[in-house]
Amino acid sequence: MITDKIEEVTQSLEDTLLQEDIFTNISKTERILSMASGSYIFLKGVSNIFSSPLLATTELILGFGLLQRGVTGHCPVTERLENSKLGSTSVVVVER
């Protein structure tokens, strides 16, 4: 019963959120971990908004960034690191 539900959730995630395109530069595992940790941090920020506004704002920004990274599959930091490893070489494609 529980394994069926887990399989159903996994299948729905792979069909919708975890689809890859040309802009995806992080793995599915990283995406899942980013969504999970981003959700936790974001919700923690929402709960702290009145008791500690500065900390809550930081948590909201960090949580949103992680959620965006997980949902889109694109991380600008990873992209920049990969480009620096390649020596920042540009590839120009000329089509006729």
Score class of each variant (00 low, 15 high):
residue 1 M to S: 14
residue 1 M to R: 07
residue 3 T to Q: 15
residue 5 K to S: 15
residue 8 E to A: 12
residue 8 E to Y: 07
residue 9 V to R: 03
residue 9 V to C: 00
residue 10 T to N: 15
residue 10 T to G: 12
residue 10 T to K: 13
residue 11 Q to E: 12
residue 11 Q to W: 01
residue 11 Q to L: 07
residue 12 S to H: 11
residue 13 L to Y: 06
residue 14 E to K: 07
residue 14 E to F: 05
residue 14 E to I: 02
residue 15 D to G: 06
residue 15 D to A: 12
residue 17 L to A: 01
residue 17 L to S: 06
residue 18 L to W: 07
residue 19 Q to E: 11
residue 19 Q to W: 02
residue 20 E to Q: 09
residue 21 D to Y: 08
residue 23 F to T: 03
residue 23 F to K: 04
residue 24 T to K: 09
residue 24 T to F: 05
residue 25 N to K: 02
residue 26 I to R: 04
residue 27 S to H: 05
residue 27 S to M: 04
residue 28 K to S: 04
residue 28 K to L: 00
residue 28 K to A: 05
residue 29 T to R: 12
residue 30 E to R: 03
residue 30 E to C: 08
residue 30 E to K: 02
residue 31 R to L: 07
residue 32 I to C: 04
residue 33 L to M: 10
residue 34 S to L: 06
residue 34 S to K: 00
residue 35 M to H: 01
residue 38 G to Q: 02
residue 38 G to E: 05
residue 39 S to P: 04
residue 39 S to A: 12
residue 41 I to L: 00
residue 41 I to Y: 01
residue 42 F to R: 02
residue 44 K to D: 10
residue 46 V to K: 00
residue 46 V to A: 09
residue 47 S to K: 06
residue 47 S to F: 05
residue 47 S to L: 05
residue 48 N to E: 13
residue 50 F to N: 06
residue 50 F to W: 11
residue 50 F to A: 07
residue 50 F to P: 04
residue 51 S to G: 10
residue 52 S to D: 14
residue 52 S to F: 06
residue 52 S to I: 07
residue 53 P to E: 03
residue 56 A to P: 07
residue 56 A to L: 02
residue 56 A to V: 00
residue 57 T to M: 15
residue 57 T to S: 15
residue 58 T to H: 12
residue 58 T to L: 12
residue 61 I to A: 06
residue 61 I to K: 01
residue 62 L to I: 15
residue 63 G to L: 07
residue 63 G to P: 01
residue 64 F to S: 13
residue 65 G to S: 02
residue 65 G to H: 00
residue 65 G to P: 05
residue 67 L to F: 03
residue 67 L to E: 06
residue 67 L to Q: 01
residue 67 L to C: 00
residue 69 R to Y: 10
residue 71 V to Q: 00
residue 71 V to C: 06
residue 71 V to M: 03
residue 72 T to H: 05
residue 72 T to Y: 01
residue 73 G to E: 02
residue 73 G to V: 06
residue 74 H to S: 08
residue 75 C to A: 08
residue 75 C to E: 04
residue 77 V to G: 00
residue 77 V to E: 09
residue 77 V to Y: 04
residue 77 V to P: 08
residue 78 T to A: 06
residue 78 T to M: 07
residue 80 R to C: 08
residue 81 L to Q: 04
residue 82 E to W: 03
residue 82 E to V: 07
residue 82 E to I: 01
residue 82 E to R: 08
residue 83 N to T: 05
residue 84 S to F: 06
residue 85 K to H: 03
residue 85 K to V: 11
residue 86 L to Q: 13
residue 87 G to Y: 01
residue 87 G to N: 00
residue 88 S to D: 13
residue 88 S to R: 08
residue 88 S to E: 11
residue 90 S to E: 07
residue 90 S to G: 11
residue 91 V to R: 11
residue 91 V to L: 13
residue 91 V to S: 10
residue 92 V to C: 08
residue 92 V to E: 08
residue 92 V to G: 08
residue 94 V to H: 10
residue 95 E to C: 12
residue 95 E to D: 14
residue 95 E to P: 11
residue 96 R to D: 14
residue 96 R to S: 14
residue 96 R to T: 09
